[in-house]
């Protein structure tokens, strides 16, 4: 679906630097604090695509919410390009596991959301069609979300993020609810998008293969409260191949780190 020849008209943005400094975070649960992040230190360089991998419910998604600025961390600080994050900003856009398109808006109006919210729709409206074409949804502008398949809805959500030219794209298990074939196809599409655009990517996933296929670095978290267990650079060229023996070896290593080596 990704038309790479189209990308020469897109502005190549400079990726954002993210610096997570000694961040701890806890929730109130029945009056008692529940620690979900414990002294997390993480630096993401511009243009990297970093996968956060860990057991379900360990706090990876919480870290993404903090980076997005949707909540402030309980302790520590997060810097974006050296400035502390004090709220959401359209330069840091999130794609959630659920597409969460607004059901009352057409696909086009959903994609227009960010421009509309910032009053840029009139001057920047042409970017909407470009973003829709980029994710392969040209021709579906007038469709309503309930008429889309799961993969198409997630593509629309992706277009809604990309139209804002984010410098950091935060992907919270974006492919988690798709069928496995659509999922494999969209992994390649996402990698192509990231390579052609230049944004920094943060990807939370449960899928080790997905992390290895897409990311430049894989951060392995422990169970709750999340601590960083390992920081593995994936120094393989793109486009990657799922059967790459180096990736297979890394997969084994990660399974060991997650305590699942006996299934190898």
């Amino acid at each position: 679906m990704v038309a790479l020849e189209n990308t020469d008209t897109r502005a190549v943005v400079a990726g954002m630097t993210i610096d997570v400094q000694a961040v701890s975070h806890s929730f109130e649960l029945d009056g008692a604090p529940l620690l979900v992040l414990d002294e997390v230190e993480l630096r993401v360089e511009p243009g990297e695509l970093v996968a956060l991998l860990g057991p379900s419910g360990c706090g990876k998604s919480t870290l993404l919410r903090l980076v997005a600025g949707l909540e402030p961390p309980s302790r520590g600080s997060i810097m974006a390009d050296g400035r502390p994050i004090d709220g959401p900003d359209p330069s840091r856009v999130v794609v959630f596991q659920d597409p969460t398109l607004y059901p009352w808006r057409t696909v086009r109006d959903n994609v227009a959301l960010g421009l509309e919210a910032r009053g840029l729709q009139r001057s920047q409206g042409h970017r909407i069609d470009k973003a829709l074409a980029l994710v392969g949804l040209a021709g579906f502008e007038k469709a309503y979300p309930h008429q889309l398949s799961g993969g198409m809805a997630q593509r629309a959500a992706l277009a809604r993020a990309l139209v804002n030219d984010p410098r950091l794209l935060i992907l919270d298990e974006p492919l988690g609810k798709l069928d496995s074939l659509t999922r494999l196809a969209m992994q390649s599409e996402l990698v192509d998008l990231w390579r052609s655009s230049g944004f920094t990517g943060l990807l939370v996933t449960h899928d080790i293969e997905e992390a290895l296929f897409m990311a430049t670095r894989v951060i392995v978290f422990s169970g709750r409260p999340a601590r960083i267990k390992a920081d593995l650079p994936i120094d393989r060229p793109y486009p990657r191949h799922r059967g790459d023996p180096v990736l297979t070896e890394l997969r084994h290593r990660i399974l060991e780190l997650l305590g699942l080596a006996e299934t190898w």
Partner: peptide, 20 residues
């Protein structure tokens, strides 16, 4: 999540009420 989406895209409180 509708509010989260709009907030990360730069929506003002007014936008959140009237458009979300």
């Amino acid at each position: 999540a509708y509010y989260d989406i709009a907030r990360t895209l730069g929506a003002s409180p007014r936008f959140l009420v009237l458009k979300v």
